[in-house]
Design a protein around this nucleic acid. Structure first.
Length: 542
RNA sequence: GCGCCAGUAGCUCAACAGGAUAGAGCAACGGCCUUCUAAGCCGUAGGUUAGAGGUUCGAGUCCUCUCUGGCGUACCA
């Protein structure tokens, strides 16, 4: 529908010069009495044409060439909106398109041949993934899927650091727990990792090796062992919600390959560094940022900024056309430094898109649960999946815009297995499947020959909603807003459920029934594509 | 102090590059199952979009200020 309007307005632009450079938007009005589509172009160009908006609207309509079989009625309303009413005969054609394209419906080639890297989760392997990581993981994966849908070849990457101080403490924590399990008296410092998972790893070690490991160093064997076990655990958790990474990028490889040194050399060559207090500083103020920052400490160790910069450069070197970083809001202050530095080294940072999602506040009833991996005070993603199920967890994190804070009530999560809106969507899909089974038993079949018989308001509303799918995919993908798709699917389901209560298939006249079967197959197809893009199952039965 | 994100119904959140009477779900109340799945549908109630100014034909959306919350502001990652 929208495409048709764009076409006829393109032709119109040649006739009316004040429309020449005007961006013409078509929106779906909030009220049905304002038509199927509406444009405010007459209001917008009123000044330029120095006429009143309603007069412009009339002139536009007078000059507009359109097929009356497609557009039934055009009205001027309010201060100068132009409202378009489409004929049901035209609207209904979308069903044919969906049935022909099947899974390909709502797929775009816009970025065909382009490569995108989506970096997300990137939690260091110091403990199990928490609810906060869950939001990151689910949004990141959905963004990746949407980018694939508009043509990108996407690589999902997980960046981690197993060389920092956190990891050192982890190794020491594990060794102490190990000694403790052997019956030694130990003092377990409060700043060490308190989590039970470390005790469990220690138990395994005692079982497997007895006391042979007492000679091993915390930074060697114990750290490696902890990392290995925890990473397996993280991958397993991600797998439960359908997330598989193409690549795990180890920060340490940046040192081994000499990239860190190369970056330092490059900065020095451009005279972007200076030494102060035995540390090496990067002149970020010269690059337009707030303050200079240390990149190599007086101890000789780099700060996290340096490897981050080197890492981003590898993304460029690997030839990606789009690089998406997804961080929690705690990283909001660090990326401007990294981007400024990367830019200074000559890279086009407009290819980097940094997405910041707000935190998940976990509530235990009315109490806020403060989360800390080290203090072992956290709700794990696994626990959430156990309680609510993978589909509900994914949907819960996707359905809200990432710029909003998210309150997650653990007590509610259990109830939500019954009340979660994800079931509303899945139910629509399962219901259609069920109808199709019943239809088969009745010997009824699908046909596109009579779709013009679909004129019931419930049918037309549903069909018009199908028209919006492609736009929704584009909008969700280009703006990195998977929650839009979730909202769309809820609306589509709602229209389907209404159709279900008002229009029957079995028992209807045969031609009408065949048209309605085509309609629900189309709806099922769109639901399935949409749910899959969100990483949610589309069940045949519930 | 400064920077980023937010504040919308009792609760959790939507609202497409500013559009017409701000929408869902949950919770509350009242209806609808001899007929394709009641995890559904229909109805009632619920709002000065934190507050105050401003920009314009038109503001939840843009600008300024104030208030409240989250996250930062390290030679921690």
């Amino acid at each position: 529908m929208k495409k048709y309007l764009e076409e006829i307005f393109d032709k119109l632009k040649a006739k009316l010069d004040y429309l020449q450079n005007e961006q013409i938007d078509f929106t779906i009005p909030t009220q049905k009495s304002f038509g199927d589509f509406s444009t405010n172009v007459a209001l917008k160009s009123a000044k330029k044409a120095s006429k009143n908006p309603r007069a412009i609207a009339e002139e536009i309509i007078g000059n507009l060439e359109y097929d009356p079989n497609v557009i039934e009625k055009i009205e001027i309303a309010g201060p100068g909106f132009i409202n378009f009413y489409f004929s049901s005969k035209f609207v209904v054609r979308i069903i044919r398109e969906i049935l022909e394209k099947k899974e390909e419906f709502g797929k775009f080639n816009i970025f065909k041949g382009k490569r995108a890297l989506v970096e997300f989760v990137s939690a260091n392997p110091t403990g199990p993934l928490t609810v906060g990581h869950g939001r990151n993981a689910v949004i990141g994966d959905a963004v990746a899927k949407l980018l694939e849908r508009i043509g990108y070849d996407v690589v999902r990457e997980y960046y981690f650091n197993d060389a920092g101080r956190q990891m050192k403490v982890l190794g020491e924590s594990l060794k102490l727990r190990y000694l403790q399990k052997l019956g030694r008296e130990i003092d377990f410092p409060g700043e060490y990792y308190q989590g039970d998972y470390i005790v469990e790893i220690a138990e395994e070690l005692v079982k497997e090796y007895g006391d042979k490991l007492v000679v091993e160093s915390p930074e060697g064997f114990f750290k490696e062992k902890a990392k290995e076990v925890i990473f397996e655990d993280i991958k397993k958790t991600l797998g439960r919600i359908g997330i598989v990474f193409d690549n795990f990028y180890n920060e340490r490889s940046l040192y081994d390959s000499g990239r860190i040194d190369k970056v330092i050399a490059a900065f020095k060559e451009k005279n972007l560094t200076y030494e102060k207090d035995d540390a090496l500083w990067l002149k970020l103020t010269e690059l337009g940022n707030e303050a200079d920052k240390v990149i190599i400490k007086s101890t000789g160790e780099p700060t996290y900024r340096l490897p981050d910069i080197a890492y981003h450069i590898t993304k460029f070197e690997r030839g990606f056309d789009l690089m998406v970083d997804l961080f929690g809001s705690d990283h909001s202050a660090t990326y401007p430094d990294v981007l400024a530095a990367v830019k200074a080294l000559g890279y086009d940072v407009s290819k980097v898109k940094v997405l910041i999602h707000q935190f998940v506040t976990v509530m235990q009833g009315r109490e806020v649960v403060k989360m800390s991996t080290r203090k072992a005070n956290y709700i794990t993603l696994d626990y959430l999946i156990d309680e609510a199920g993978a589909d509900a967890v994914r949907y819960f994190f996707i359905m809200r815009s990432m710029t909003s804070h998210l309150n997650f009530d653990i007590e509610l999560a259990k109830k939500q297995t019954e009340e979660n809106p994800v079931f509303y969507l899945q139910y629509a899909h399962a219901r259609i499947s069920s109808i199709l089974r019943a239809v088969k038993e009745e010997g009824l079949s699908q046909s596109l020959d009579f779709i013009e018989l679909l004129t019931h308001p419930a049918e037309l509303n549903l069909i018009k909603k199908l028209h919006g799918f492609k736009d929704e995919i584009l909008l969700a993908a280009l703006n990195y807003e998977p929650h839009r798709l979730a909202n769309y699917l809820e609306e589509l389901s709602s229209y389907f459920h209404k159709f279900y209560t008002e229009c029957r298939i079995i028992g209807s006249e045969e031609k009408l029934a065949s048209a309605r079967i085509s309609l629900i197959i189309a709806v099922k197809q769109v639901l399935k594509i949409g749910l899959n893009l969100l990483g949610i199952n589309a069940p045949e039965r519930m």
